[in-house]
Write a protein that binds this DNA or RNA. Sequence first.
DNA 1: ATGCCGACAGGATGTCGA
Length: 260
Amino acid sequence: MKIATWNVNSIKVRLDAALGWLQQAKPDVVALQEIKCVDENFPREAFEGLGYNCAVHGQKTYNGVALLSRRPMEDVTPRLPGNDGDEQSRYLEALVQGDKGMVRVASIYAPNGNPMGTEKFPYKLAWLERLNARAKALRAGEEPVVLMGDYNIIPEEKDCYDPKAWMGDALFQPESRAMYRRLANLGYTDAFRARNALPGQYTFWDYQAGSWRKNQGIRIDHMFLSPQAADRLKDCQIDRDMRDGDKPSDHVPVWCILDI
DNA sequence: ATGCCGACAGGATGTCGA
């Protein structure tokens, strides 16, 4: 089973690129982030035309997450528990049937947290705290779980082109990096790092300053696997070529193969 | 030190992203 995550930075602008990528990459399940549209405006028919079911937790202008799946989805649940007053659409969970068993998946768009010194950074940490609690509850179920998306966390120095340039940024604060480690300490595996230890493996390159041309990127899109999912991990890679296409997103897809 | 680019809402240009 091939499972992928991609921050598309507007599904409206990225629709043609997404349809082309789906036909070439042929994932079974896809988590999308930053769809930037309300549920009614999500281009369901286009994805259904390629054989995908859609689950959408949208929002006007900002944020918005979705799940695509060839197999029907069950237990479709938007929002992270822990703060009913949080209006931002950043989390969507569902249960999917594989050939050999079930897998629970979540599309995650963690807050950016910049600029430092504003309320945005505490909001980021509080949101990640809620994600940690959900991850802990799911781990207790001892089932295959994939928590994937844009975490807005640079885990280590080798995950960015110039650590000094990111020192003052919310994505590289010790508190942010600690939240990544806490997921690992719960028993979740960073699927990409389980397969590839090299530095310079990025998932995001800024539109500005020729970042892509100079390969000045960061790795912030992650797939965290519960122990039962990690046991079945066969491969995990970054579709970096997608940064080269026509009207590219600033993020590229990350995918893994699970024997499920 | 800041903007660079791109998307959005709306109909000019400010907000946001990372």
